[in-house]
Write a protein that binds this DNA or RNA. Structure first.
Length: 475
RNA sequence: CGGGGUGUAGCGCAGUCCGGUCAGCGCACCUGCUUUGGGAGCAGGGGGUCGGGGGUUCAAAUCCCCCCACCCCGACCA
């Protein structure tokens, strides 16, 4: 293990890779473009899964599971969908030692196979809405993989719903967008911009894609979740129809939405610092690490007893006691800092003698002495404070690196600069959007839907504009 | 698919140009003893078909041919 991490300012990308390795979140797999999610990284993901799964269930969704392999012909049924996904699909052509009659696509997403099943399950308006989610792995043969952000195989949830009316489907799409926003802000402690994507950026086969977009510490944008209003595009292609209350037949209106292991990358890049990860308390695998300090065997016994009491006083908190003998204190401090544990509690003979413990915040490095009687309460309060402060810092950071720009020269110069969000008017012409991408590598991340209506002129082409959008370089 | 690079111990590397005690170093690992309030010290030890195949040679990590894999930079993407 190398002694020091590369500083973020020196090489953000190298910093990112080193943090993942040193914090033992993931390791490169022998399989091209794939990663192994290690126990610590998986524990973080599991905490995220638990929260999201609860939120989905609270809003009426149920879980199910569909096959990994999808008949090739299914993809051909929706024109935009096949065009969007074919280039990045892995295909199974042989099975049982023989060439298959029909190739099977390893799912890059499951709209098609789920639509096929929905066509069988839905007969009547009484069968609607159908609100199903699945936790699954998917494959996309990406040309340039990056751990968590873009791996060939990744884990995610994908929700697929069917509704009787367009309005209900739209409402569902926005309900999920709101769940994603809440999850990002309240749990991941990452403020997000949210709203519809432009046509160029929307999901292949969707009428409209909504997304949440967060800012990473290098000023780039990361799409952290998407919610699609599919309209009747798939229900027509797969003939998912139902009988209405008045006896006529109609195709269902669908949505799909997903959030993936990419969000682990978001937590790393939105909060991490030159010492490693900084994890938000609500999702951290260990919220508190306790480090006992003892020289002799006699001290050991006394400290052990105090540690037991201390841990008992932290009921309901995810606590890790690091009593490994083979590592010195400095080693342990550094390791848990690298792993981003929100609070460290040190407990040694000197502390016990004065009836206190040392508590250190990972996010600020602030150290305080807390009496052992009040430690339980203090730790609980501190965890909440850290969670809140992390969100506020991320918000301040984003605001500091966002600016509103109105004229072309400043726009191009800023877009070619060193990252950050640009708030600017856009005429609505896809050609203009494409030209900006060519010239600056910036794309429109979304059209924030909570911004007030405002007319003006397009920052790039000068034509009339009805909307302001967010431009950024994206992962 | 274009451009650039790398394959030698678990990880990081030296050795390759100029064939011949070059199978080596650091970290990690194992054993023992001593240490422990910010990455401990000493002593001893284990671990390799040098990416794969073929060729040249008395002799190949080193030279030649073929293959494979991975990484970085672009185009595509959650």
């Amino acid at each position: 293990m190398a002694k020091k991490l590369t500083a973020q300012a020196d090489d953000f990308s190298a910093w990112y890779n080193e943090v993942i390795a040193k914090a033992e979140l993931a390791d490169n797999a022998p399989t091209r473009g794939c990663m192994v999610i290690r126990p610590y990284g998986f524990a973080l993901w599991e905490n995220m899964v638990a929260v999201l799964d609860r939120m989905f269930k609270e809003t009426g969704h149920v879980n199910a599971y569909f096959p990994l392999l999808i008949p090739d012909s299914f993809f051909q049924k929706e024109a935009e969908h096949v065009e969007g996904f074919s280039p990045e699909c892995a295909v199974v052509t042989h099975g049982g030692g023989k060439k298959l009659e029909e190739s099977l696509m390893v799912r890059p997403t499951s709209e098609t196979i789920i639509a096929d099943m929905y066509a069988r399950w839905i007969q009547s308006y009484r069968d609607l809405p159908l609100l199903i989610n699945q936790w699954a792995n998917v494959f996309r043969w990406e040309l340039r993989p990056r751990a968590f952000l873009r791996t060939t195989e990744f884990l995610w949830q994908e929700g697929h719903t069917a509704h009787a009316t367009a309005a209900e489907a739209e409402e569902e799409t926005l309900r999920i967008l709101d769940i994603y926003r809440t999850f990002a802000e309240d749990y991941m402690a990452i403020p997000v911009l949210y709203g519809p994507k432009t046509d160029a950026e929307k999901f292949p086969g969707a009428l409209q894609t909504y997304a949440i977009e967060g800012m990473m510490k290098d000023g780039k944008a990361l799409q952290m979740g998407t919610s699609h209003d599919l309209g009747q595009n798939f229900s027509r292609a797969f003939n998912i129809d139902f009988q209405t209350r008045d006896g006529s037949r109609e195709h269902v209106y669908q949505t799909s939405w997903g959030m993936s292991t990419r969000t682990v990358g978001a937590i790393i890049m939105a909060h991490g610092d030159d010492r490693g990860l900084v994890l938000p308390p609500r999702l951290a695998p260990h919220q508190v690490v306790v480090i006992p300090i003892a020289k002799s065997d006699e001290e050991q016994a006394v400290v052990q007893e105090a540690v037991d009491k201390l841990v008992a006083s932290l009921e309901g908190v995810r606590v890790k006691v690091d009593d490994r003998e083979q590592f010195g204190l400095g080693w342990k401090f550094t390791e848990w800092e690298t792993k981003g544990v929100p609070l460290r509690v040190e407990l040694g003979p000197r502390d016990i003698a004065s009836g206190q413990a040392v508590v250190v915040r990972r996010d600020t490095g602030e150290k305080e002495f807390v009496s052992l009687e009040t430690l339980g309460k203090r730790v609980g309060d501190l965890l909440e404070t850290v969670q809140r402060d992390m969100f506020q810092r991320a918000l301040d950071f984003r605001e500091a690196r966002s600016r509103e720009i109105r004229d072309r020269e400043a726009f191009v110069s800023a877009a070619n600069g060193d990252g950050g969000f640009i708030h600017a008017h856009w005429c609505g012409d896809p050609a203009c959007e494409a030209a900006v991408k060519d010239e600056t590598r910036n794309t429109i991340r979304c059209v924030p839907m909570d911004w007030e209506a405002d007319s003006g002129v397009c920052a790039y082409c000068g034509r009339a504009s009805e909307r302001k959008v967010v431009y950024a370089q994206a992962y």
